[in-house]
């Protein structure tokens, strides 16, 4: 028996919002430590890795590890039936072929349950090597979303260049070119407004803007986004999910041929 209860259904709604552009389906791997998801987009250029820890749920029970193949379009439709303030419970019998979502209104006057068929998805897990990144940038998630959106109007690639002064985002195309430079903030009163750069060595990498824009669908989950870069390895874009977990997006760089 698997059962996970979350008081804030909005977290699950935002998680689906954050992954449904990139992925059509994904396997939710549930164990007693929590729910994990790892899936590449169809082009195998980007990967989503999500983790929701069991101690972040109000109630969590997982008698035996269970992998639930979810159609994310269907799951999105079901989660749209939950009000933001509803309590959501996901539950499934061991080796079940369906999962049930129960939404309870705060005053318990309305209880809805939705049963969704599960899919048999082949599990292709990638080994992601632990990496000491040359540059780790933290900036306001809204700022990053704005930069990606603005620059994607100029070209289909964004060059991210990180030095100890700060980070520069550039794009060029038919209409011209654009550069956005963010300096490290010195003393900001609020942590989530800071731009910080931890640099071991300067890095400049090129990425496809459309993937960066897909990643920013996770902006509603966190005030801060973290970008980790090293020469010739995928970019990592990480959003924390409250106190319960994180979503990490990996993006393969564009390389001069």
């Amino acid at each position: 028996m698997f059962e996970a209860r979350l008081v804030q259904s909005s977290i699950l709604k935002k998680v689906l919002e954050a992954i449904k552009d990139l992925l059509n389906e994904a396997t939710f791997d549930c164990s007693d430590s929590g729910i994990q998801l790892q899936a590449m987009d169809n082009s195998h250029v980007s990967l989503v890795s999500m983790n929701l820890r069991s101690d972040g749920f109000d109630k969590y029970r997982c008698d035996r590890n269970i992998s639930m193949g979810m159609n994310l379009g269907s799951m999105t439709k079901i989660l749209k039936c939950a009000a933001n303030e509803d309590v959501v419970t996901m539950k499934a019998q061991d080796n079940a072929d369906t999962v049930t979502f129960v939404f309870e209104s705060p005053n318990q006057e309305k209880v809805s349950d939705y049963e969704m068929k599960l899919m048999n998805l082949d599990q292709e897990h990638l080994g992601i090597p632990e990496t000491e990144y040359a540059c780790v940038v933290r900036l306001p998630a809204g700022e990053f979303a704005r930069i990606c959106r603005d620059l994607s109007q100029f070209g289909e690639s964004v060059v991210i260049s990180c030095t100890k002064e700060g980070v520069k985002f550039s794009s060029a195309g038919d209409i011209g070119s654009a550069n956005i430079k963010l300096a490290q903030t010195s003393n900001v009163d609020k942590e989530e407004l800071a731009v910080t750069v931890e640099m071991q060595e300067p890095v400049t990498l090129t990425f496809a803007s459309r993937y960066l824009n897909s990643f920013t669908k996770a902006t509603s989950l966190s005030n801060v986004v973290q970008l980790s870069m090293s020469p010739d390895v995928p970019l990592v874009v990480e959003y924390r999910i409250g106190e319960i977990g994180h979503i990490r997006y990996y993006l393969a760089p564009k390389i001069e041929d």
């Binding site: 990967l47 990638l126 080994g127 992601i128 390389i255 001069e256 041929d257």
Partner: peptide, 14 residues
């Protein structure tokens, strides 16, 4: 024009 690489270049299948 830069060529888009694939993740399989960096991550191996488990």
């Amino acid at each position: 024009e830069d060529m888009q690489s694939k993740l399989s270049r960096f991550f191996s299948k488990n």
